[in-house]
């Protein structure tokens, strides 16, 4: 089986700051990979390089056979980035629903505007996905009338309605009140069980243990460990991984 996501020799600089250092990572179809690491280790930057919200300085990103090299310019490159973004869906920490659109309008916006999908067909698809995250009953509501957990579920439906090949989650539950985290994790687990390939930056160790096939540990812009969750949490090889796990156990990030 060949990888659906393949990150090769990825470097990212912010000015002089070397944030990602020669990262290579492969993700197989249907795999769920959790990315953990201390604040500032480069987790978000890695995720955002995959859909070129951050332009990689060097290296290539491959998603479902489409290879895009970082550090390029021009029309052709922009087209490649566009195609890459159609293959990836992203869920943000602070939801970023469009406040001037209802829930349903948020979800059909991508298919209608980007894919030029017929509106009726987009609504059908959107309603299916909203139902899947149990938010169909709020389809005519505006985002500012939803709880954080509800917003995030809509954001997940919005990304899924674009029918991406891989979903990227950047700390999807970090902005939520503790009692709302569960509903979002439940939805994510459901998406994983339906066979979606997922990369998830998270501090939720329970989720990582239960749902992830692999856990990747980052420190100072490098991947320091990459293993199945049981293995990683039971017998961490790197002292920094152990320290990280200890921190999570003691309840703080």
């Amino acid at each position: 089986m060949s990888a659906i996501v393949k990150i090769s020799n990825l470097d990212k600089y912010f000015g002089r700051l070397h944030v990602l250092k020669d990262i290579s990572l492969e993700v197989q179809p249907r795999e769920v990979v959790c990315i953990i690491g201390r604040s500032g280790s480069g987790k978000s930057t890695l995720l955002r390089c995959i859909n070129f919200l951050e332009e990689p300085s060097h290296g290539t990103i491959e998603v479902d056979g489409l290879i895009v090299a970082g550090g390029e310019k021009g029309k052709e490159h922009r087209q490649l980035v566009h195609d890459l973004r159609l293959r990836t869906g992203m869920v943000f920490q602070d939801f970023n629903l469009f406040p001037h659109m209802s829930v349903l309008e948020n979800v059909i916006e991508g298919p209608v505007t980007v894919k030029k999908m017929d509106r009726a067909k987009a609504i059908e698809l959107a309603e299916y996905n909203l139902n899947n995250v149990d938010m169909l009953w709020k389809k005519d509501e505006y985002p500012n009338r939803l709880s954080g957990g509800q917003k995030q579920r809509v954001a997940i439906a919005r990304a899924l309605t674009m029918e991406p090949r891989v979903m990227l989650f950047d700390e999807p539950t970090s902005a939520l009140d503790p009692e709302l985290i569960g509903e979002v994790l439940t939805v994510m687990k459901k998406v994983a069980l339906e066979g979606m390939t997922m990369l998830v930056v998270t501090h939720e160790m329970g989720f990582a243990k239960e749902v992830a096939d692999r856990v990747v540990v980052m420190a100072d812009g490098e991947i320091i460990e990459d293993a199945a969750p049981e293995e990683l949490f039971e017998t961490p090889k790197d002292a920094r991984t152990l320290a990280l796990i200890e921190r999570y156990r003691s309840g703080s990030n």
């Binding site: 859909n51 919200l53 566009h82 973004r85 159609l86 990836t88 869906g89 992203m90 943000f92 602070d94 970023n96 629903l97 469009f98 916006e109 991508g110 505007t113 980007v114 894919k115 954001a155 919005r158 990304a159 674009m162």
Partner: peptide
């Protein structure tokens, strides 16, 4: 907010859209 633009770009919208 920047997040609004990023959400739109992540959906595949062009800068114009």
């Amino acid at each position: 907010s920047k997040g609004q633009r990023e959400a739109a770009l992540a959906l595949g919208m062009t800068p114009g859209q």
